[in-house]
Structure formats: C-alpha cells, structure tokens
Amino acid sequence: MHTKIAVAGEGGQGVQSIGEILAEAANRSGLETTYMPNFGVEQRGGVSIAFVQISDRPIGSPKFKRADVLVVLSPRSVERTRGYVTPGTTVIYDSSSIEAPKIDDMTIGIQSWETLAPEGFADMAGNRPGKGIKGEEVRRDSNVRTVGIPAARIAKEELQPRVFNILILGAILAITKVVTVEAAREAMEHMFREKFAQRPELRDDNFAALERGLSLVETEQAGAGR
C-alpha cells in the first residue's frame, strides 16, 4: 500500500491542515508518511498545495509527479495541478466552486505543463517555458475517477464556513480509506488540543464536518464515477 495525495486550493482554504491531519493520523496508525507543503511567495492568497504520502514501507522522495488522489478546491488549483493526473488518479473537487466541465477539460483533457496567468507574462519577459515536464495525453475514457463534493455550499449552509476543509477531509477518508476515521479524530484531538480546550464547540463543529464529509460520499450528493 502506497498512496500519494495532493491537496490543492487557495491559501486560507485550510489545504495544509488537511495534509497535516492526514499525515498525523497515518503516523499514529503506525504507517510511514511524509507531508510537504508547497506554496508561492505570497503572504496570503495564491495556490497552496499539500503533498502527502502514506505507505506501509519507507518513503523515498517527498515529491511525486503523479497523484493517486488529487483534491482540488479552487479553479486556479485545477490549472496548477492537472499535471499530477494520470490513469488511475481519483480527482476530488469542490463542485460548489468548480464546474464539472472544467474538471473534464482541464484535468482529463490534454495533459501538459503550461505557464498560465500571471505566469503568462513570463513569456513576454523572455522567460518562456520550453522543454521540461510534459504530461502524456490522457484519454477521456481512461481510468480517471472524479468525485464532485459541494463542500463549500454545505459548509456554508449547514455547518460553519471555517470547517470546509474538515468536510473535505471526511470525503477523502471515505474515498481513499488511507487512514481510519478514528485515527483522524485522534490526530485532530492531538493537534487542536489547546483550541478545543479553550472553545469546546470547535470540537463539535469539526467532528460534525468530518462526519458530514464521510456521509456525503456515501450518499447521492457526491457526483461519482464519471
């Protein structure tokens, strides 16, 4: 068992927290794990990516080129991470902020590295991307599974907007089963112990979101298996 997970979104969406909890839970479960944050130079905003690997064997490079699970939570992060998709990748996306056709076109369409706005200006400055990392073409009928979760909408309407990321975490757990829900809860208890001690309602909100995420995948609200 070796699972490579990339979670991508806007800075402030809680992407890195998802990665940290996954890694902490895996570690507590006696598995090998690496977590590596990756973000731009911006103080806030910008695309933020968490790279997590979970395995029953020692892990080599913390970086990988193809993800088993790719989670995208904003339109920009779809563009940024489409190179990580390969036949067999499961793409989980926030269907309340990203339209399904975008996932189809960008993620399952022609895979290649391109420099996009604002990096597009690089071209004019003479910084043209040329050869380098080129993805192979992934055919639409290839084995890429996409799962849309209206996480932002549900978090806003039914829960608290701030637990959006934990709802996503629940969905990841339900789909990948890389760690158990109990291990994730334990990890969160450990990581947020001071916050939970100060404001016990945070524990309830977060665990409710985790449960909601789990159940979403199991109900028809998740648009599965494209």
Partner: peptide
C-alpha cells in the same frame, strides 16, 4: 519571483 518549481526549472 516565482511560485512554481517547474517554472524555475524551465527558466
């Protein structure tokens, strides 16, 4: 200033 590893690689 750049945000992406691969971009620096190219440059």
């Amino acid at each position: 200033t750049f945000n992406i590893e691969e971009e620096i690689y190219e440059i």
